[in-house]
Nucleic acid binder design. Structure first.
Lengths: 235, 235
DNA sequence: GAGTGGTCTAGACCACAAA
DNA sequence: TTGTGGTCTAGACCACTCC
């Protein structure tokens, strides 16, 4: 525990406990350094971290103030399928159902300029259906996909290995699955399912779009972060 | 854009683009400082940030290396109801259905030592049902709740004002709602719904538990973060 | 104008892990 | 044993903003 961490944790505790109400002014870097017997740069490091995590607002010449609290965001873990299944202590499997087909995820046709390939398959946990996946991959961004074989390996697994450090956007909703998906998942009509969509890109270029469908009773997104600092607000 | 930011962004770009593959060694702080014409502390700040965001691993005596990429997590925005409704350009409303009742969110009875109060109500968007809410509040942690009136204000709104800087844990799943919830939401039987659970505490003490149910076609969790750094891994 | 945060420096010491 | 990251210092300069 560094000195900067100590200053950070003391202030974090006093803010989270309500002892320092929103709007309250926090000691200047100079005073904080003096009262803790350290250099100003050390106090600055602690206050910069509090500001980065949204606990305080800092204004030149005015000082630092406890921020107005908001329910900002939560981290929902959305890992890849082998990880999900493995963390439940089950064996992972993959079964390709359809593909590759040539069509576009938005238009459904291959009319426009971009070239996409399209697959469907099922992720298995202990040899039983766990999630249905629809997958599109942009051939322009990932030319290697033309030589890939997704019969024994899911596209997501292959992509993670082939294109590291992509970025993603997610959407979650509840749906009544189509009959094709119901058959693949072996669920009854009317069974509510969780649908997770993921758009992935790399350096401003679309890489892939995936749509996962989980039986409602077999999966839930469970946010994992324990009591602690909220994620950094931005940059 | 500070000098440390420039070093950070250059390395971030080269890692995200794949130019620096996972496992690749990154220049030492000393060399990085020299090549950029700055002090080692400045290079250290940039590398510390890359490590905090999980892009590199750092080991004493060995150096810094590009980390193995994983789909780690996504930020799903889970704000409070007035914010959700307001951001859709709709007018927000609240209607209390039941409560306060005395029972415990886990046991359903009031037998054990803890004292909880319990409500049910509906959040409205343009005067139409938007979400059903079940709410428990721990009287021991929030004694002020005994004088609160949730006829015109939702418990969550009141709590946000009364107890700033709480912490929360969320879970999301797809469910078939109970008949009571279906009536409140005015949805047909068999309509899939998104259920969001939220546990809230403050300083290790349980504050409240809420269960929101949304009609599947009226709401989806949409993760908002644009291409950019992943949230800090931990601490 | 004055005082604050934001940033950087040049140097230092230590802990720790790799060689 | 050695070299790296981790941390801290004392001082400095600048930009911005509040008074």
């Amino acid at each position: 525990m560094s000195q900067a961490d100590r200053i950070y944790h003391e202030l974090e505790r006093r803010i989270r406990s309500g002892e320092l109400a929103p709007g309250t002014q926090i000691p200047f870097e100079q005073d904080l350094a003096q009262s803790h017997g350290c250099a100003r740069a050390t106090a600055n490091k602690a206050l910069a971290r509090l500001a980065r995590e949204g606990l305080i607002d800092r204004r030149r010449k005015a000082g630092s103030f406890v921020a107005q609290p908001v329910i900002r965001s939560a981290i929902l873990n959305v890992p890849d399928m082998p990880t999900v299944v493995g963390s439940r202590g089950q064996s992972y499997g993959w079964q390709l159902l359809i593909g590759p087909l040539q069509d576009h995820p938005d238009t459904g046709s291959d009319a426009d300029g971009e070239s996409w390939l399209h697959w469907a398959g099922v992720h298995l946990a202990d040899a039983r259906p766990f999630a249905h996946e629809l997958r599109w991959i942009a051939c322009d961004t990932v030319p290697e996909v033309s030589t890939a074989d997704f019969a024994t390996e899911a596209p997501g697994t292959w992509l993670l290995r082939t294109l590291p450090w992509t970025q993603a956007r997610h959407r979650v909703r509840a749906v009544a699955p189509s009959s094709a998906v119901r058959r693949a998942l072996q669920v009854k009509a009317g069974a509510p399912c969780l649908q997770l969509e993921r758009w992935t890109w790399r350096s401003e270029r679309a890489v892939t779009y995936a749509r996962f469908t989980f039986p409602g009773d077999k999966y839930d997104l469970d946010e994992a972060f324990a009591p602690g600092p909220m994620p950094a607000r931005k940059d």
